[in-house]
């Protein structure tokens, strides 16, 4: 596997490590925020991946057990730079939480009850929601632009199932998987 855009960088591995470190250190709110950040960074800013690959890898990260942030670091790292990329990305993803949590365990009661910390956490959500909304607008627009009615219906139905009926995300992945296999059996082309 060769990633030409990655190989053309001056210090590719350093750039990968530092960007993963930065994303892990500043991303509050878990997996999908991390994925939104990675997509913005690696598909938009660095041009190492395209949007389709990002979605494929998100599906894979979501179908495997474990923390979504960890899983996406593994697969993004692999796709960008092979096995060395996996280990660099994992290391970079794990270092900030290990350091921060280790420090916090010593005074966590004060931290949890701290007024300012709670205000920061609450207002932080607005920015996090904006980051995700930005990514969803781009990716959703791309689905509409395929003009594939089944996919558009699938996207909207899945959204309602998830956010209104609280269906587990694993069922959504399974349903899309079955639809994909079914359209292959029918001999359908995309």
């Amino acid at each position: 596997m060769k990633n030409e855009a990655f190989a053309a960088e001056k210090h590719p591995y350093l750039k990968l490590f530092l960007s993963m470190l930065e994303i892990s250190a500043f991303t509050f709110g878990g997996g999908f925020v991390i994925i939104s950040m990675m997509r913005k960074r690696y598909a938009r800013e660095y041009g190492w991946l395209n949007d389709q690959e990002v979605l494929d890898m998100t599906a894979i990260a979501q179908s495997a057990p474990g923390a979504l942030g960890v899983n996406s670091a593994i697969i993004f790292g692999y796709r960008i730079a092979g096995l060395p990329g996996v280990f660099l990305s994992l290391l970079a993803t794990v270092i900030p939480p290990v350091v921060i949590i280790s420090l916090i365990t010593f005074f966590y009661e004060r931290f949890v009850n701290n007024e300012v910390a709670n205000i920061v956490l609450q207002v932080m959500r607005a920015g996090v929601a904006a980051v995700i909304a930005d990514v969803v607008i781009d990716l959703g627009k791309a689905v509409f632009e395929t003009k594939n009615l089944l996919n558009i219906a699938l996207m909207l139905a899945a959204f309602f199932a998830l956010s209104v009926f609280k269906v587990s995300s694993l069922w959504i992945i399974a349903a899309a998987l079955i639809l994909g296999i079914a359209s292959s059996l029918k001999g359908g082309k995309q």
Binding site: F32, I35, S36, Q52, L55, D56, T58, A59, Q62, I132, V135, V136, L139, G140, V143, N148, L150, N151, I152, L154, M155, L156, A158, F159, L162, S169, I172, I173, A175, A176, L177, L179, G180, I181, S183, S184, G188, Q190
Partner: peptide
């Protein structure tokens, strides 16, 4: 085909 159907579902997850 599977990936083609998975992508819109993933957009919904996000």
């Amino acid at each position: 085909n599977v990936l083609f159907r998975l992508r819109p579902a993933v957009v919904s997850l996000i």
